[in-house]
């Protein structure tokens, strides 16, 4: 199974940096998310996760380190978390880490809301945003 790597980019749209690694189950998404086709972008991630869950069947650690995402992305992130919760319910080992800029309580609040929505435990960490 291949890595899924997407280079972060900030142009007309904001593409977050994505790195999903099947060798150790470490997944990371960071940066800003505002996309031309939000569903398509996150479906790539969901498809990768589903393949990993069906084939590799090992632990997953998913790190979110987003500094901005639009509401359309927030809906898609919820779908990603639902896939992780389903894996956990089936016995998979899932760790979700949510890093939020310390001056942005709305991103911290999102994690709280996602926990309520999915029942997944999300570890929250504030970080100091660099300029």
């Amino acid at each position: 199974m291949d890595n899924l790597e997407i280079k972060g980019e900030s142009g007309v749209y904001f593409i977050p940096e994505v790195n999903l690694n099947p060798a150790n189950g470490h997944c990371k998404i960071s940066g800003e998310s505002y996309l031309e086709d939000t569903d398509e972008f996150y479906n790539n991630i969901i498809n990768w996760l589903e393949t990993y869950i069906n084939e590799v069947k090992q632990a997953i650690t998913f790190d979110f380190r987003l500094t901005y995402f639009n509401t359309s992305s927030s809906r898609s992130i919820l779908n990603v978390l639902r896939v992780l919760k389903k894996y956990e319910d089936k016995g998979g080992s899932v760790t979700v880490n949510w890093y939020y800029p310390e001056d942005d309580e709305s991103i911290a609040e999102e994690a709280e809301d996602y926990m309520k929505d999915t029942g997944l435990k999300i570890n929250m960490f504030a970080f100091e945003p660099e300029d």
Partner: peptide, 19 residues
């Protein structure tokens, strides 16, 4: 917001419907 985000996308909606 959570309620709207959890609901299926409406037909005309191109975003999350929670802007």
């Amino acid at each position: 917001k959570r309620e709207l985000r959890n609901a299926p996308k409406s037909e005309e909606s191109k975003g999350a419907g929670i802007g």
